[in-house]
Nucleic acid binder design. Structure first.
Lengths: 103, 103
DNA sequence: CTCGCATATCCGGATAATCGAATATGCTAA
DNA sequence: TTAGCATATTCGATTATCCGGATATGCGAG
């Protein structure tokens, strides 16, 4: 199952980057065009477009042209469920570390 | 929330690698010591230990010494839930691609 | 067609991840 | 103590990832 695991890892890899995580949560609120993401995340357009390309290549997001704008939206809403689980685990870990330090 | 997102991404990053995914699924079956993983995954011991270190640093796995062996186990079982969601999404994507090709 | 905005790609350079052999450390038993 | 197995770390080399400025492409308005 090497190959399947590689594909699995590729998908995980695609969401394992701070800017891309922010993009996914933003798109979960509502579909956006590129410049909305640029403004919202205060990140250069070049950088946003590069990350969007990575998400597109993994089919995590979908695009729809509307005039000169390109709207992005989540292809699979349950990617947010997976991210939320990871977030809650991280929260548990941080809390546990904090408790250890403070006796 | 840049910092929180970075931590979130670090955790995601730690699970986004084929060998580490295989290790996590193996540990989900049962706790193992290092050489069991080496045999099971047919991967050099150096490589396994390096990946285990990364998982340890993120508190994803826990260790317990027993004599000269070190047993590893999952620190948070729900990491498997997150991985399963990602796997099911990947499966959907692959199926969709397949359907497109075969009309 | 041309202009201008929206978006995508190209480029070079910096940083980080991966590998496995070699080597070090830790523990047990004799 | 020493021998030997289990595990961890160091090393150098390779490969991947990231950044953002510069630039290219796509589309609508005029």
């Amino acid at each position: 199952m090497r190959e399947a695991t590689d594909l699995h890892a590729n998908l995980c890899q695609a969401i394992a980057e701070p800017t891309r995580i922010s993009i996914l949560y933003a798109l979960n609120e509502k579909p956006c065009h590129v410049n909305e993401l640029v403004d919202q995340l205060k990140t250069p357009q070049t950088t946003i477009s590069r990350h969007l390309k990575i998400l597109r290549e993994q089919s995590i997001v979908e695009t729809q042209r509307e005039g000169s704008f390109v709207f992005y939206s989540l292809g699979y809403q349950r990617i947010i469920q997976a991210l939320d689980i990871m977030k809650s685990i991280k929260l548990d870990i941080v809390r546990k570390e904090h408790d250890l330090i403070h006796k």
